[in-house]
C-alpha cells in the first residue's frame, strides 16, 4: 500500500436521540493509501455517509481519530477543515448538487476560484470539455439532464486536481446506462489525476471497480477486503 492518505483509528460517532444515546459508528479502523480506490458499502442506515462526512471534516467524531493528508482533523477548527477540503478534496453527490443559479461553467469555476487558481476560467472550460460538455458551458443545471449534471459535478470535483475524491452514491439517481457511463468517466478521471477515490455506494458495479471494499454493518466494519 502506498503511504496512507486517510487513517481512521477507533472512530466512534453517536447521537443523543429521544431513546437515549445512539451509536452510529463504533470502533472503525482502517487506512487508505494514496491513489487507491476504495468503496464503502452497506445497507441503508449502516453509517456509510456519516463515515464519509467525518472523513471530509463536515462533522466531528465522538471518539477516535481521523487523519487526512497528514493532518489530524481533531486538531483543525471549522475553517481549517474547510481549507483542507478546498485544497485537497473533491466531492461528488448522489443528487449532483450543482448550484442552480450558476451555469455549468460557473459551477466548475467555483472551487477553482475558492482555491485561487490562476487561469481558472480556461481550466474550467477544459474540465468541462474533458467530460464532453464543451457545448453546455452556459447552460444552467435545470437545462441539463441528470447524466449531464453529474458530469458537471465530476468536472467540478476533479477541476482542482484534488488528492482525495469523496463520492456519495454518485450513481444513485441515474439510470443503468447513464450510471455505467458516469462510472467509466469517474475512473478515467481518477486515473488521469492520480487521485485517491473513496466512494460510498450501493451499486455493486461501482464497488466492483474499486481496489478495495469496506463494508459497514450496524455501525461496525463487517468486512474489508481487496479485489
Amino acid at each position: 500500500m502506498n503511504a496512507p492518505i486517510i487513517t481512521v483509528s477507533n472512530l466512534e460517532k453517536s447521537f443523543t436521540g429521544p431513546s437515549g444515546n445512539l451509536k452510529i459508528l463504533d470502533n472503525i479502523n482502517f487506512s487508505i493509501g494514496e491513489r487507491s480506490t476504495v468503496a464503502i458499502t452497506g445497507v441503508s442506515g449502516a453509517g456509510k455517509s456519516t463515515l464519509l462526512g467525518l472523513i471530509a471534516g463536515l462533522d466531528t467524531a465522538s471518539a477516535g481519530e481521523i487523519e487526512v493528508c497528514g493532518q489530524a482533523l481533531a486538531q483543525l477548527d471549522e475553517n481549517g477543515r474547510a481549507l483542507l477540503r478546498r485544497h485537497r478534496m473533491g466531492f461528488v453527490f448522489q443528487s449532483f448538487h450543482l448550484i442552480t443559479s450558476f451555469s455549468a461553467l460557473e459551477n466548475v469555476l467555483l472551487p477553482m476560484e475558492l482555491n485561487g487558481l490562476d487561469d481558472a476560467r480556461r481550466k474550467a472550460r477544459e474540465a468541462l470539455r474533458r467530460v464532453g460538455l464543451e457545448h453546455r458551458l452556459d447552460h444552467y443545471p435545470a437545462q441539463l439532464s441528470g447524466g449531464e449534471q453529474q458530469r458537471v459535478a465530476l468536472a467540478r470535483a476533479f477541476g482542482t486536481t484534488p488528492q482525495l475524491l469523496l463520492a456519495d452514491e454518485p450513481t444513485g439517481n441515474l439510470d443503468k446506462t447513464t450510471a455505467s457511463a458516469i462510472i467509466e468517466l469517474l475512473f478515467e478521471l481518477n486515473a488521469e489525476h492520480q487521485t485517491t477515490l473513496l466512494v460510498v455506494t450501493h451499486d455493486d458495479a461501482l464497488a466492483s471497480r474499486c481496489e478495495r471494499i469496506i463494508e459497514i454493518d450496524g455501525g461496525r466494519m463487517a468486512n474489508q477486503g481487496g479485489q
Binding site: 463536515l58 477540503r85 478546498r86 478534496m89 448550484i99 467555483l110 472551487p111 467540478r156
Partner: peptide
C-alpha cells in the same frame, strides 16, 4: 447551497 459551498471548501 450553504452546506454545498462548505462541502466544497468555502469557509463560513
Amino acid at each position: 447551497e450553504i452546506a454545498l459551498l462548505k462541502a466544497l471548501g468555502a469557509t463560513k
